[in-house]
Simulated assay, not measured.
Amino acid sequence: MKYPPIFQVATADPGVTALLGANPTRLYLFGMAPEKPAGTYCVWQIINGAPDNYLAGRPDVESHALQVDVYAASASEARAAGQALEYAIELSASISSYNGEDRDTETGLYRYSFSVDWIVRR
């Protein structure tokens, strides 16, 4: 399996790094975020995917669905970072859904969530 290059795409965009930082960029694979990240941050995970199978020959691409969740101290900060990520990603993949917004009761952080469909060449 080849993973979608979300980190490379996001860190190449100045709008994203302005909101999520540049060194380090606070964009984490699920379960890899620090316990209490400083500032606005994002986590992503693959929620499903499959190779594009053919009757003859090996698949040359894989389709992945990703869930992206942005967390911030305010709703406006979460939305701004989420929209910057969407803007950066949509030239390489498709934003497939908006998954809602809420506020985490344990941390008090605001969450902005969306899904991405990404086709990756093997």
Results as ranks from 00 to 15, higher is better:
Tyr3Asn: 10
Pro4Leu: 05
Pro4Trp: 02
Pro5Asp: 13
Ile6Arg: 00
Phe7Cys: 01
Phe7His: 12
Gln8Asp: 15
Gln8Ser: 14
Ala10Ile: 02
Thr11Ile: 12
Ala12Cys: 05
Ala12Pro: 02
Pro14Val: 12
Gly15Gln: 11
Thr17Trp: 09
Leu19Gly: 02
Leu20Trp: 06
Leu20Gln: 09
Leu20Glu: 09
Asn23Val: 08
Pro24Ser: 08
Pro24Arg: 11
Pro24Gly: 07
Thr25Met: 14
Leu27Glu: 00
Gly31Trp: 06
Ala33His: 02
Pro34Leu: 13
Pro34Met: 12
Ala38Val: 14
Gly39Arg: 07
Gly39Ser: 09
Thr40Ser: 07
Cys42His: 03
Cys42Val: 13
Val43Asp: 07
Trp44Asn: 01
Trp44Val: 02
Trp44Phe: 15
Ile46Lys: 08
Ile47Pro: 02
Ile47Trp: 05
Ile47Glu: 13
Asn48His: 11
Pro51Met: 01
Pro51Arg: 01
Pro51Gly: 11
Asn53Phe: 13
Asn53Met: 07
Asn53Leu: 09
Asn53His: 12
Asn53Ser: 11
Tyr54Gly: 00
Tyr54Lys: 15
Leu55Ser: 13
Gly57Lys: 03
Arg58Ser: 11
Arg58Val: 08
Asp60Leu: 06
Glu62Thr: 10
Ser63Arg: 11
His64Glu: 06
His64Asn: 14
His64Thr: 07
Leu66Lys: 08
Leu66Gln: 09
Leu66Phe: 13
Asp69Thr: 15
Asp69Cys: 12
Val70Arg: 06
Tyr71Ile: 04
Tyr71Ala: 10
Tyr71Glu: 05
Ala73Asn: 13
Ser74Thr: 15
Ala75Asp: 04
Ala75Thr: 03
Ala75Cys: 03
Glu77His: 07
Glu77Gln: 14
Ala78Gly: 07
Arg79Ala: 13
Ala80Glu: 08
Ala81Gln: 04
Ala81Trp: 01
Gly82Ser: 06
Ala84Thr: 07
Ala84Leu: 04
Leu85Phe: 06
Leu85Trp: 04
Ala88Met: 08
Ile89Arg: 00
Glu90Asp: 13
Glu90Thr: 10
Glu90Tyr: 05
Leu91Lys: 10
Ser92Tyr: 11
Ser92Asp: 10
Ala93Arg: 03
Ala93Ile: 01
Ser94Arg: 15
Ile95Ala: 11
Tyr98Gln: 09
Tyr98Val: 01
Tyr98Thr: 01
Asn99Pro: 00
Asn99Met: 11
Asp102Ala: 08
Arg103Lys: 15
Asp104Phe: 03
Asp104Trp: 04
Asp104Gly: 04
Thr105Pro: 11
Thr105His: 12
Gly108Trp: 01
Leu109Asp: 10
Tyr110Cys: 06
Ser113Phe: 01
Ser115Val: 00
Asp117Met: 09
Trp118Asp: 01
Trp118Gln: 05
Trp118Ser: 02
Trp118Gly: 02
Ile119Tyr: 05
Arg121Asn: 13
Arg122Asp: 03
